[in-house]
Design a protein around this nucleic acid. Structure first.
Length: 578
RNA sequence: CGGGAUGUGGCUCAGUUUGGUAGAGCGCUGCGUUCGGGACGCAGAGAUCGGAGGUUCAAAUCCUCUCAUCCCGACCA
């Protein structure tokens, strides 16, 4: 591609609206432009990168035996009503009506559509397993879109759905996708890590997220320094601590203490002169409409995903002020496990049964209690793993040391089980002629988000640095000829040679000064630059620059193809590719 | 939805406090010089100051309403 005929509107300054580096650089490199909040135009350069990611993903999906389809982005409400998600999905689902007043939505995901498609076609176990995927534009009306392509409302996603006849098959399909994802992300050239994830409201037995490791990631990963364990913070489990239960151990008589106006853990501890770990923190939630009290130690953080899973609910909300008053008889800040309103389920973190003589809220304004014994004074329904893991907790697999890192979620694999097939009556006949629901799995990759995360992971003060596999162009050939037609003519030949070699190259033949071409090439982040100038031509050499290391070497013009081929090979290898 | 901020040429911003002829840099067009790390000179084009209403002799500037965008929080297969 000759850049004199191409469209790359680069910007010298950071756009005011961009906060994170990938957003700034995607804008500045002329790869995207915003249409409206969370919705972007993909310009020629940006689209090339997206397509490269999508094609690698396609190849790995095809290799894994999945079949590409393309489903509509407009979906009828009745399918969503069948699964109950029309009500459950909430405002993130963009809904609208057609001219007849019928309800539709813009697809944020395609479980309903794919299940509907398959139930009409797949009737026999002989047709199973089957895995269908698509690369498509999704729409989720995020409350707060931000960070450019990182969290847009409209975005490009690859989503795959597997259908199996039995558990064994479903599990095989799951791990098949898991392996395909590892291959795809490796080929894309990202530093990533698969981590255990909470399967959330979608249910299912297990789930992994694929995280691109980057400082600016929105997710926190807890991983073990000693073994392979890695999990999303909300999933990372904590084993029941050693030692015996001390709930019924001896404890002085309960007494009330006045704590006027002290409603945070910090205030109460300071006021009473005790450590935060001496307190029981009582948090009130509503899980699927039912009030639940969750207890963790004062210095700990409750993990609401764990609570939701323990209770077995779909939806979990903090109790509002009015409900807190109703359940505790006190304003917010004085809730305690003793003397809560009848019927409130009380669950507690494991840690709390390994000690006694607690301080807790008194369920009375400006009052706490001390010498609280959970066994004697409270009705705890269950002790369980409820708190958020910390870096000082041991690894749940091997007791090794845990460390936190930041990541960007670019892929997610789920075992769905029967959730959709049962509700939508998607069945097949097994070997015995018996009707059974299909066992499903779903597998997503955020294609447009990958382009952003590649930049988050690879950039410097001059711009982006793309892995060669997904760069908009693998190499940029820059002619510094100006009016020197001999240089331009030679550059033209080299460009033809590159094309003949099957190299994905662009040729900067613009009538621009050298500095402009260098700056643009660095900004856009082509992993390789080739620079031909007058002196070089005279000496029979062309300069080759590795964008990642900044290293420049000279390649001989008379054996250019061979020399370039070797250099290119070394660049790909340095990226851990090929 | 709650809190905060911002809307002025294509982009980044000044001007708003104290009402009085709409500015700069970058980008763009033309001519000339220049040409290995975002050149220089000259000449130009381009803005009803987010929108509506109001106050005033006079509004980018003051008032009311509204829309949009961004940040923090809640949300998020």
């Amino acid at each position: 591609m000759k850049l004199s005929r191409y469209y790359i509107p680069t910007l010298k300054e950071d756009p005011a609206e961009a906060e994170v580096i990938s957003h700034k650089l995607l804008m500045r490199a002329g790869m995207i432009r915003k249409l409206t909040s969370g919705i972007y135009n993909y310009l020629p350069l940006g689209l090339r990168s997206i397509n490269k990611v999508a094609n690698i993903v396609r190849e790995e999906m095809d290799n894994a035996g999945a079949l590409e389809v393309l489903m509509p982005s407009v979906q009828p409400a009745d399918l969503w009503q069948e699964t109950g998600r029309w009500d459950y999905y909430g405002k993130e689902l963009l809904r609208f009506n057609d001219r007849h007043g019928r309800d539709y939505c813009l697809g944020p995901t395609h479980e309903e559509v794919i299940t509907d498609l398959v139930r009409g076609e797949v009737r026999s176990y002989k047709q199973l397993p089957i895995n269908l995927y698509q690369v498509q534009t999704k729409f989720r009306d995020e409350i707060r879109p931000r960070f450019g392509l990182m969290r847009g409302r409209e975005f490009i996603m690859k989503d795959a759905y597997s259908f199996d006849k039995d558990e064994e098959g479903a599990e095989a399909s799951y791990w098949n996708m898991f392996e395909a994802y590892k291959k795809a992300f490796s080929r894309i050239g990202l530093r990533f890590k698969p981590v255990q994830a909470d399967s959330g409201a979608i249910g299912g037995d297990f789930s992994h997220e694929f995280m691109v490791l980057a400082e600016t990631g929105e997710d926190t990963i807890a991983s073990c320094k000693a073994c392979e364990f890695a999990a999303n913070l909300e999933k990372a489990r904590i084993n029941e601590p050693e030692g015996e239960c001390l709930c019924d151990a001896e404890c002085p008589a309960l007494e009330e203490v006045a704590t006027p106006g002290k409603h945070t853990v910090e205030e109460v501890c300071e006021f009473l002169g005790v450590e935060q770990s001496a307190l029981v923190k009582t948090l009130l939630f509503v899980v699927d409409g039912e009030p639940v009290a969750a207890l963790v130690r004062g210095d700990r953080e409750l993990n609401d995903a764990k609570l939701r899973n323990l209770i077995g609910g779909d939806e979990i909300d903090m109790a509002d002020e009015a409900l807190v008053r109703e359940l505790t008889g006190a304003p917010v800040g004085f809730a305690g496990p003793r003397s809560l309103k009848e019927g409130v389920r009380i669950v507690a973190d494991y840690e709390l049964c390994r000690a006694t003589d607690w301080i807790a809220g008194g369920n009375k304004a400006d009052t706490h209690v001390r010498h609280l014994s959970l066994g004697r004074d409270c009705k705890i329904e269950q002790f369980a793993d409820l708190r958020v893991i910390t870096e000082s907790d041991p690894c749940p697999e091997c007791h090794g040391e845990i460390e936190f890192t930041k990541g960007i979620e670019v892929g997610h694999v789920f075992k769905l089980g029967l959730k959709y097939s049962e509700k939508m009556n998607a069945t097949f006949l097994d070997e015995n002629g018996k009707e059974k629901p299909l066992i499903m799995g779903c597998y997503g990759i955020g294609v447009s988000r990958i382009v952003a995360s590649a930049i988050e992971q690879n950039n410097d003060e001059n711009g982006a640095i793309f892995p060669p596999s997904i760069a908009p162009f693998e190499v940029c050939l820059i002619s510094l000829g100006g009016k020197d037609e001999a240089v331009n003519a030679r550059a033209e030949e080299l460009y033809a040679e590159l094309k003949a070699m099957g190299v994905d190259a662009c040729y900067d033949d613009r009538k621009e000064r050298p500095g402009v071409k260098f700056a643009d090439a660095d900004l856009i982040g082509y992993p390789m630059q080739l620079v031909l100038g007058g002196k070089g031509l005279k000496n029979g050499i062309i300069e080759a620059k590795d964008r990642k290391t900044g290293e420049r070497i000279e390649l001989p013009l008379d054996s250019f193809s061979e020399a370039f081929g070797q250099w290119r090979e070394s660049i790909w290898q340095a990226w851990g590719l090929k």
